[in-house]
Design a protein around this nucleic acid. Sequence first.
DNA 1: GTCGAGCGAGCGAACACTCACTCACCATGC
DNA 2: GCATGGTGAGTGAGTGTTCGCTCGCTCGAC
Lengths: 197, 197
Amino acid sequence: MPADSVPPEQKAQIANAVRAALAKHGYARLTTKKVAAESEKSEAGLYYYYDSKDEMIVAFLETSEDYLARSLDEIDAEGPEERLRAVCDILIVDEDDAAAAGVNIAVMELLSHAPHNETLREPLLRMERHTLGVIADIVRDGVERGVFREVDPEGTAAFVLSATDGYTGFALALGMEGVGDDLRASLSAYIDSLLVE
Amino acid sequence: MPADSVPPEQKAQIANAVRAALAKHGYARLTTKKVAAESEKSEAGLYYYYDSKDEMIVAFLETSEDYLARSLDEIDAEGPEERLRAVCDILIVDEDDAAAAGVNIAVMELLSHAPHNETLREPLLRMERHTLGVIADIVRDGVERGVFREVDPEGTAAFVLSATDGYTGFALALGMEGVGDDLRASLSAYIDSLLVE
DNA sequence: GTCGAGCGAGCGAACACTCACTCACCATGC
DNA sequence: GCATGGTGAGTGAGTGTTCGCTCGCTCGAC
C-alpha cells in the first residue's frame, strides 16, 4: 500500500507502536517483530499497510512532527520573551518523564543515523527546519518590537535548538541527573541577556 | 582475550577500523564484517583480540576519549576567555571536514543508544563528564579571576556542551549548511555576554 | 460469492560469533 | 647445522539465530 493512503487511524496506531518500541529498544535494535509486539497487529499485519520497516518509522516521525508543531502552535504566552521561554520549556524534556525522554532520545538516534538513511532524512529535516523557523520568528518579532537586542534571529534560533537537542543527546541519554536544571537555568539567563536593558 | 590486555598497536588498529566503519555506515548498520573490511584483518582476526563487537566499539570510544582529552589538554591559549573560545573551536566540528564530522555524528548515535546498551554507557559517561569538567574549570577560573561575571560554572559548562553536541546531532547530521557559522557566531556572542563589562 | 483485513508459517539473507586449522617463528637437543 | 616441537597470530568455512519481508490462507461483512 502507498504510504500516503494508509487510513489515519491505522497510521496513528502503527506510529504509536513504533514510538513505544523505539523508546524501549532504540533504533539500532528496533525490529519489526518488536513493533508488532507493541501494536495489536501481527508482524505481517504491519506489512499490510506499509511496504517496509523504514516507512513505518517515517510514519512515526510524521506523527511526532505533527505533535511538536501543534505543541509549538498552541503556545498562548503573550510577547516574545514569554513565548521563547515557553518554547524552551517544550524542547527541554523533563528527565523524570521517562516516556517523553525515551521518544526524544530515539529521535536523536534517528537524527544521528540520517546521514546513512535517505528515507529518514527528509522528515527529520522538515521537523528541525520547522522548529528553527518558529524560534527565529519569535526572536525576529522580539527584535522588531524592541524587546530583544539586535541579535541575529537565525543564529539565535540555531543556538537555542542546538542546546536543547544537545541536552537530549548527551545528558538525558546518559542519565546525568541535575544537568537538566543546570541547563534550564543557563538558558534562562541567556534569554535574560537577549533582552534590552 | 581480556579487553585490557590487547596490545596497544592492535587496539589502535582495530579502533581505527571501527572509526572508519562507523563513519561510513553508522552504528545501526555497523557489522563486524564491515569493521574487518576497514582493517587489515579478517572478521575472525578481530575476535582473536576482542570477545564481542561491543568491546571493539568500546576500544574505539576509549581511543576517541584519549584523543579529545589530549586535544583539550594541549590548548595553549592564555586566559579563561581565550581558553573557552578554543574549547568551542574544538567541539564545533567543521562541516567541511567529512571525516571528523562522520566520527562525531557516530559518537552522537552511540550516545543516543546508550540507554539500551550498558557496555557503551560507561566510556561515554566518562568522556562527557571529562569535557564538562574541563569547561567548568575554565569558567570557574574566569569567575575567580574576575574575567567572567558571577555565573554558575557547572550550568555554563552544561549549556556550552549541549550547544556543541546538539549542533553535531542535528545540523551536521542533516547536512544543514550555514548552521555551523550561525552557531559559532551566537556562541561567540554568548561568551562576550559572560565577560564583565 | 466477493473482497478487504489480517495472520501463521516460513523464506533467503545477514548477523554475531566459533572452530579446526595453518603458518611463521623460536628454543632446544644433538 | 639442523630436525623437533611448542606457540602466538591469525584465517576460511562454517554455526545457529535473527532479520526484513512474503505467501497462502482464513474469516467476517456486505
